[in-house]
């Protein structure tokens, strides 16, 4: 209950907003991915990493998963990244970023440099991500929606 957060993530102006999103995407390891296939939305947890400029989000998935099938049918996705702690303080202090964008599988030659970004955050997933059955997916983010203080919402559009 006490002092889990030093303060609410700020978003009153563009630099605060970017800083807050950066803080969220760098500190959180997992995001909820929303994909869509055969008329049905589908949510799953993915280990992700974002590029420093916030323009791309990376995650890895094996090609036999439902999410991978969905992505090959519909590339528009949403990702939710939040810092909730499952305490009542969440209603005041938690923040959540929803990223909207388009997903594509990254193959060589870009794959190697992007894998390094991904592994810098998740070094223990080396075996997983380098497996021939695993796809590295890059989401080109069009906009972020950041929610704080329960119901304040600001958008960051990436041009």
């Amino acid at each position: 209950m006490t002092g889990l957060y030093i303060s609410v993530l700020k978003m009153d102006n563009i630099s605060e907003l970017k800083q807050s999103i950066t803080q969220l995407v760098s500190r959180q390891k997992l995001a909820v991915l929303s994909s869509f296939g055969k008329g049905q939305p589908y949510a799953s947890l993915v280990a992700f990493a974002a590029t420093e400029d916030l323009k791309y989000i990376l995650f890895a998935t094996t090609r036999s998963t439902r999410k991978y099938t969905n992505l090959s049918l519909e590339s528009n996705v949403a990702l939710l990244i939040d810092n909730r702690t499952n305490e009542e303080t969440d209603f005041s202090y938690a923040a959540a970023a929803t990223a909207l964008g388009r997903a594509e599988e990254i193959r060589d030659p870009q794959r190697e440099s992007l894998i390094n970004i991904y592994l810098a955050k998740h070094p223990h997933l080396r075996e997983f991500v380098t497996s021939p059955s695993c796809a590295l997916v890059q989401v080109t983010v069009q906009k972020y929606y950041l929610v704080n203080r329960f119901q304040n919402v600001q958008e960051l559009h990436i041009q």
Binding site: D12, N13, I14, S15, L17, K18, D53, K55, Y145, R149, F150, Q151, N152, V153, Q154, E155, L156, H157, I158, Q159
Partner: peptide, 17 residues
């Protein structure tokens, strides 16, 4: 003036309390 734009990015308020 400083609220809404920065190179490559634009802020848009969506829901304000």
């Amino acid at each position: 003036d400083s609220v809404g734009a920065e190179e490559g990015f634009r802020l848009q308020a969506r829901q304000i309390t």
